[in-house]
Structure formats: structure tokens, C-alpha cells
């Protein structure tokens, strides 16, 4: 198939008794911005490291741009760029030195491929003589991305690039990824933050080494198994505890300023809930039906429901 960039066929990996990955199957198209969404310990890093040829899979096969991640590991390293979750540039080299170092390793020069990183590098140029260790979190991420791009990779593997970075820098980082995508680069990016799912073309939700679901982000909430409601009242914590005690309530949890809850099948309407809550002394109750978010779907999937 010509339009497949990354193909993962039944990849598994264990560390002793701990199963880090189990039968992962994914196809990622060329030029796709694909999100691997899941908490710490879900297996995101293990999968990305296997794709980057830095770790051998325990079972299954995977290919990137048609090259096998085990047999063709040298080729894989030429055509991919891997940005680890931990800042992995040389802290005591300056911005410019780091860039020229990575360019040299890949047999190229900053000059030759400047066009690839220009958009991002202009924001760093004023700091080109600053040691990388002295940059802010957002700046470090930009430099790491520049270093990853300097050898003109066809595939970018980004492991939690936005963890610990402030909201503005994160938004900027995602804008950069969208621009790179227009150049035809395939991007696989992992994140623990559900709200970043919407920024991807497609996502896979991953938990305890298994993929729970793969789809376009806007489609996932559509498959939510029940109607979901948001409720608020004066005493939110008491409201939560009371809801969780009610036999009619299937699930109830905090979601920002509201509590999200759904009902057991025998109780189709939330009106009764409001009445019961009023009787037990709650004031200012407001209930409305809401469209489930990625987080709601993830929770349902984690509880073993089919979404």
C-alpha cells in the first residue's frame, strides 16, 4: 500500500512479567498527524522507541515507510526523527552548537536544510548563543524540534513533547506540527492530555499496553454508550457523594465546574434525580445533557464498556 507510512502488526513487548505492549495494530497514513493518547505507563514510550528502532519488539512486526524496524534499522534512523520525552539535547552546548552537532551527525549542514526549520528557528535565533540548558521549557521544545528536523526526516516520532510546557507554548507547538504536516511529514505524537486529542487527524487511545480505540477525534464521543449529563449545585462535593450513592446513577465524576453523570438503563430521565436531590437539601441544581468528550469516552473504555 502506497499511502501507508507506519504499519504496526501485532507488536508486543514485555519486561519480565510486566506486559508493556500487547498486540498493537495500527496503520498510519503518509502525512498524517496521529495522536497516541494515554496515561503514563500505558506503553506509549515503548511503542515509539520500537518504531524508532531503539528497542526490539518482543513479538510482531512494524515498518516505517516500508522499512522493517528490526532488519532495516539503519534506514529507519535516516528517515525518522525521534524526540524523546526527556529533554535530550546537550545542555552545555549553545542553541547553534546543538543544531550544527545534529546536522553533522546526519551528514548535512544547517545551511543546507535551513528552509526546513526556518519558521521555528526564527523564534530561537535571538538566543543562538545561549546554552540549551538555560532556555525556558517552551524554547527547549522548539530547539529539540529543530534538531529533529534538521536531517529532513519523512517521519517524526514525538514522545510527549508538550508535557510540563505552559499552555501558550503548547498551543504554539501544535501549530508548528500542523505546519510540518503540510510539508508531507508523517507525525506520530504521544500525549497524556486528553484535550490535545482534538488537535490530531486521528488518535489511538492506549491504556495498559493495549489500544482501546482508534478513530478521528470527533467520531469517538459519538459512540458513547449512554446519554451523559452535566449537573451542578451549591455544594458540589456533597452532590458528588450523593449522586454516587444513588441506585439510578450509573457513573458520576467531577468534570471541571460540573459533575458528569449517566443513568442506569431503567432510569431514562434525569428529572427524577433533580427531585431526589432537592429533597435531600441541594440548592441551585442545574442539569443539562452534554456531548461526551474524549475524557468521558476514555473513562468508559477503561471501565470495559464498548464505545
Amino acid at each position: 500500500m502506497e499511502d501507508i507510512s507506519i504499519q504496526i502488526c501485532g507488536i508486543g513487548k514485555s519486561w519480565g512479567k510486566v506486559r508493556a505492549l500487547h498486540d498493537i495494530r495500527l496503520e498510519i497514513g503518509k502525512g498524517e498527524l496521529f495522536g497516541l493518547i494515554g496515561p503514563d505507563g500505558a506503553g506509549k514510550t515503548t511503542l515509539i522507541r520500537i518504531l524508532a528502532s531503539l528497542l526490539l519488539p518482543g513479538s510482531g512486526t512494524a515498518s516505517v515507510e516500508g522499512y522493517d524496524v528490526v532488519k532495516d534499522y539503519r534506514k529507519i534512523r535516516d528517515i525518522t526523527a525521534y524526540m524523546p520525552g526527556r529533554f535530550s539535547l546537550y545542555q552545555d552546548l549553545t542553541v547553534a552548537e546543538n543544531l550544527s552537532f545534529f546536522a553533522t551527525i546526519f551528514g548535512t549542514t544547517l545551511k543546507e536544510n535551513y528552509h526546513l526549520i526556518r519558521d521555528i528557528y526564527v523564534q530561537l535565533e535571538a538566543f543562538s548563543n545561549r546554552p540549551a540548558g538555560k532556555l525556558s521549557g517552551g524554547m527547549k521544545q522548539k530547539l529539540a524540534l529543530c534538531c529533529a528536523l534538521i536531517h529532513q526526516p519523512q517521519v517524526l516520532l514525538l514522545d510527549e513533547p508538550t508535557t510540563g510546557v505552559d499552555a501558550i507554548s503548547r498551543a504554539e507547538f501544535w501549530e508548528m506540527l500542523r505546519r510540518l504536516k503540510t510539508q508531507g511529514i508523517t507525525i506520530l505524537v504521544s500525549t497524556a492530555y486528553m484535550d490535545e486529542a482534538a488537535l490530531c487527524d486521528r488518535i489511538a487511545l492506549i491504556q495498559e499496553g493495549s489500544i482501546l480505540k482508534t478513530d478521528i477525534p470527533s467520531a469517538i464521543p459519538g459512540d458513547y454508550p449512554r446519554r451523559l449529563y452535566a449537573i451542578s449545585a451549591k455544594q458540589m462535593y456533597r452532590l458528588l457523594k450523593d449522586l454516587q450513592q444513588m441506585p439510578a446513577v450509573f457513573t458520576a465524576y467531577l468534570s471541571g465546574q460540573h459533575i458528569h453523570f449517566s443513568l442506569n438503563p431503567d432510569f431514562p430521565e434525569p428529572g427524577l434525580i433533580a427531585m431526589l436531590l432537592e429533597k435531600s437539601g441541594h440548592e441551585g441544581i442545574q442539569i443539562r445533557e452534554v456531548v461526551p468528550g474524549i475524557e468521558d469516552s476514555f473513562i468508559a473504555l477503561m471501565k470495559g464498556e464498548s464505545v
Binding site: 496515561p39 503514563d40 508535557t163 465524576y253 468534570s255
Partner: peptide
């Protein structure tokens, strides 16, 4: 609360 799954995060906020 960096990096935990959504259920754990909800429990933490609880």
C-alpha cells in the same frame, strides 16, 4: 497531576 489516567485524575480531584 501530570500524566495519570483520567479515572485516577478524577479520583485525585475528588
Amino acid at each position: 497531576t501530570g500524566g495519570v489516567d483520567p479515572i485516577t485524575r478524577k479520583q485525585f480531584w475528588e
